[in-house]
Simulated scan of single mutants.
Amino acid sequence: MSCARCLKFLMLFFNGIIFLAGAGILAVGIWVKVDSGSILGFLGKIPNAPSELSQVLNVGYLLIALGALLVIIGFLGCCGAMRESKCMLLLFFVIVMLIFLAEVAGAIVLLVFRPLVDSLFVKFGIIAVQNIRTDYGKNDDVTGLWDTTMSTLKCCGFNNYTDFINSTYHRNNGYPSMCCQDGGAPCGNNTNSTAVPSVPGCFTRIKALIEDNSKVIIGVALGIAVLELGAMITSMSLFCSLKSA
């Protein structure tokens, strides 16, 4: 009986934290989407704030989805432990297991099917370059997303500055300012420039960022996997103790 109480306490404690964190993230996401006017007004008052800062509103959808998922998981874990509901505990176990299996499947795809992943990145690069040449400077969302990415990572285009050549934006405005850092990439409407750019493409930057922080990423992934395994073991242990009681 004391073992069951200990398991119940662990379920309530950890899932209570998950539920509160999810509720907070969900509230922020809803606030970002509902009260976008006030947020834009606040961002507009920040001195020398970049225009790309307004793209923070697009993060609202991600926050809502993540918050809702955490709320559901936390609710099932807490309520299942408190009410000693085998149905809720089982549903909690199934959801966490599905997330865990999805993560394992993703890791296997990255390791075993590395050539396939590389080919997918190549195809994604073609789509990204096409997106730049057709929508950059015309679509505010696309422009803001690329500007934020390039200014944050200090990069230019998907591959390099040549991604902008023959684009609508390039014909009218030349190259984006992010492509002209350190004077490496050509500035102005000069499609025949042979200058060697010092500003790398965003794909190169992201690749280097992942490689430089690979140990941290692996450590975080393993930590999350251990927590998920612990959650599944605890929920099933409590489920079995209730079943035998």
Rank of each mutant, 00 (worst) to 15 (best):
N48P: 09
F42H: 04
L53V: 09
L66R: 13
L70Q: 05
K8H: 00
L62S: 12
V59L: 15
V28Q: 06
L70V: 02
L69E: 02
K8Q: 07
S51V: 12
P50R: 08
V28T: 11
F14R: 07
L7F: 04
N48E: 10
S36K: 09
I46H: 08
G41F: 00
G44D: 06
F13C: 08
L40H: 05
L53W: 10
L62T: 14
L69F: 07
G22M: 01
N15A: 01
L63P: 12
V71S: 01
F42E: 04
N58C: 08
I64C: 14
G60P: 11
L26W: 14
A21S: 12
A65V: 14
V59G: 12
G16T: 04
V28K: 06
L10Q: 11
G37Y: 13
L40A: 03
G29W: 09
A65P: 11
I17P: 06
L12M: 13
I17Y: 09
G37R: 15
G60N: 13
Y61T: 15
G22I: 04
V56C: 10
K45D: 15
A68V: 08
I30C: 12
L62D: 06
F14E: 08
I30K: 07
L43H: 06
K45V: 11
L62K: 09
V71L: 05
G41K: 04
S54Q: 15
V32S: 05
F19D: 08
L10N: 13
G16Y: 02
L53P: 08
S51F: 03
I39Q: 05
I73Y: 06
P47Q: 10
G22V: 06
N58R: 15
Q55L: 13
A49Y: 01
A21V: 11
L63D: 14
V71R: 03
V59N: 09
A49W: 02
G16E: 02
A49H: 05
V59Y: 14
L62H: 11
L12I: 13
S38F: 08
G16H: 03
I72E: 03
A21M: 07
L40C: 00
L62M: 13
I73D: 05
L66W: 12
G24F: 00
V32G: 03
I30R: 08
F42K: 02
G22Q: 06
I39G: 04
V28Y: 04
S36F: 03
G24L: 10
Q55V: 14
A65G: 11
L40E: 05
V32N: 01
G16D: 06
G41V: 03
K45Q: 15
G29H: 10
A49N: 10
I25W: 00
G29F: 09
L70T: 01
L26V: 09
W31K: 05
N58S: 15
